[in-house]
Design a protein around this nucleic acid. Structure first.
Lengths: 328, 328
DNA sequence: CTCATTTCTGAAAACGATTTCTGAAACGCG
DNA sequence: CGCGTTTCAGAAATCGTTTTCAGAAATGAG
């Protein structure tokens, strides 16, 4: 039915072993190599990856498990990872957990069954905890969400610093009653909260924040409630782009003008943050770099398994726009 | 090193064959089944998928090859596909071609090597042509971009009708000089252009459109040029969300107010289309449905290989917003 | 009670490649 | 010219499962 390595061998008049060697660049005379290549073309042979993987005991596959593909941050990182991987002749198997620990567990099990050679993973807070107890069976690089105990390589943003920069920026623009809305599913959200709290305290201001599930609905209802409160803040920082769009909608719904009634700042420099008036101030993350560096760390660890654990902390860039214009 | 089926068999005091049967729900006495399950738990056994695939000759994997993951349309469809697949106990391997025929060829070859059981594919125009000549080796459902010759199952939007609806909507709002910007890499863009041309002609108006590579830069420079022309249109329809954001930026750059100086309408109801003032009129695609139905078609074909080829045409919904408000 | 039939289990073959092992030829060196 | 070394090719083992095949035990019918 399908053409196998034996058929190629027969067509080329050599043994299967020689075909295998010719295709993998092994020691084969030029003459036979040419014959094999011709036979491959003639027969239309495509190797069976399952067989290859079984015998060679390496899958040549890296797993990429992200929290939310609809979040442009993760799609951008994924692109970079995919690119590096294919450049290195590796396949990528991409999974989307929707911030659900149960799905994470399922996918990790799957990765194990696939015998992936390495994993790049953005875990929820709950799974991150467990990761400390039970080590994963394959080299792993965490992205966006750092291992607190330093058990895994990781590449993350300096979340606290980035958020603190946003807060200081708002303060410098004359805002004082600055609120914060942070995701509760990832450590990223909590780190950004910590940066917020620290910056507020450093400025002698009182922190006023809420935690929230990472869904548009949850954010909108939290904000609707908050905005209807007479003690609502003059400015708001949020921890991701989903919340940012929710905040704009909630502000419109509550008839709050940006930035006159409510200044606003958040994360991730997506196209539309420039387009919605008066332009939204955001921290731009080096998404390409995050993906590339994660792959680089992974490859280094594959080559040298007992390297010390490394944590790569990248910085964000503050893009100032109209949503944080100086207070009237 | 890693625990295999033999180890489980030994631990359970049975043969490997029995373990295999117990795990796959074969005919095994309750007693042994329980023993096996206990042994699996005790040993922490995880089957080796490569071996399983090799022997059983089925990968349990469906390929998903999309044109651009940064396009929210494709991420939404991907989510739906992934969901259906995992619900059916199948894995998904996701690839991103960036509208590049060379990458498409590479990935199709890869899919063949993986011996995927089925493919869901959004091909470029150029690959779509070749698909007519050389049939793919696995059951395939095309999405977003239809096979003209009807060689493959597909699920697509009624692009011409949707675009025509946008045009008629603009006409009813008083616009006459309506321009169009369409992507040249996919048949989708061309179909939408056809719908545009047809609707314009039907109304006795002269069509005035440009084709453009599917990149933000290409779109912006095309539009910058167009807008600086004194004969620029009063209204513009575009064929995807990338062009839509480019159009807003270009209009701003050219100091054209929306909709006063330029009405605007496009495709895909993303969050931000509501947020950028005065709200952008778009065709909303049934993204979830597209993914789900594609999987449904694929499964049906797997069960009944010589079903006639089916083409599922879904309709878009026009979401009217301020960008196409009645002409002053 | 006997014989055919069913039900379950284990031994062994098979999946399609890679890799090890073995040997033949070619080569280099004294 | 003889002998060790290298180079290349093929035969056969191997990877970890599933599946086929065959046989033993249990069941049921006459």
């Amino acid at each position: 039915m399908t053409v196998g390595i034996k058929d190629v061998a027969k067509a080329a008049g050599v043994s299967p072993a020689t075909v295998s060697r010719a295709l993998s660049g092994g020691p084969v005379s030029e003459e036979l190599r040419a014959q094999v290549e011709a036979a491959v073309k003639a027969t239309g042979y495509r190797p069976n990856l399952a067989a290859r993987r079984l015998r060679s005991q390496q899958s040549g596959t890296i797993g990429l498990v992200v929290a939310d593909l609809r979040n442009p941050f993760f799609t951008a990182v994924s692109r970079a990872v995919e690119d590096s991987a294919y450049r290195a002749g590796m396949r990528v198997i991409l999974c989307n957990t929707d911030e659900d620990p149960a799905r994470e567990a399922l996918y990790l099990q799957l990765m194990q069954e696939e015998r992936i050679t390495g994993l790049i993973f953005a875990p929820t807070r709950s799974t991150l905890d467990q990761l400390g107890r039970r080590r994963l069976e394959f080299p792993t690089v965490l992205i966006d969400r750092a291992s607190p105990a330093g058990l895994y390589d990781c590449v993350v943003l300096d979340n606290a610093a980035a958020m603190a920069e946003l807060v200081r920026h708002l303060i410098s623009r004359g805002y004082r009653r600055i609120g914060g809305l942070f995701g509760n599913a990832s450590v990223t959200g909590l780190e950004r909260r910590d940066g917020y709290v620290a910056a507020m305290q450093a400025a002698g201001l009182v922190a006023d924040f809420r935690l929230c599930a990472p869904s548009a609905d949850a954010a909108r209802s939290a904000l609707a409630d908050w905005f209807s409160n007479p003690a609502r803040p003059e400015a708001l920082v949020v921890s991701n782009s989903l919340f940012l769009s929710a905040a704009v909608r909630a502000a419109r719904a509550a008839n709050l003008a940006i930035p006159k009634d409510l200044a606003l700042a958040g994360f991730d420099n997506e196209v539309w943050t420039e387009l919605v008036e008066p332009g939204l101030t955001v921290i731009e993350q080096p998404v390409e770099d995050i993906g590339r560096q994660a792959m680089a760390l992974l490859f280094e660890r594959l080559q040298t398994p007992n390297l010390p654990v490394r944590k790569l902390v990248l910085s964000g860039r503050c893009v100032e726009r109209g949503s944080t214009a100086a207070r009237a």
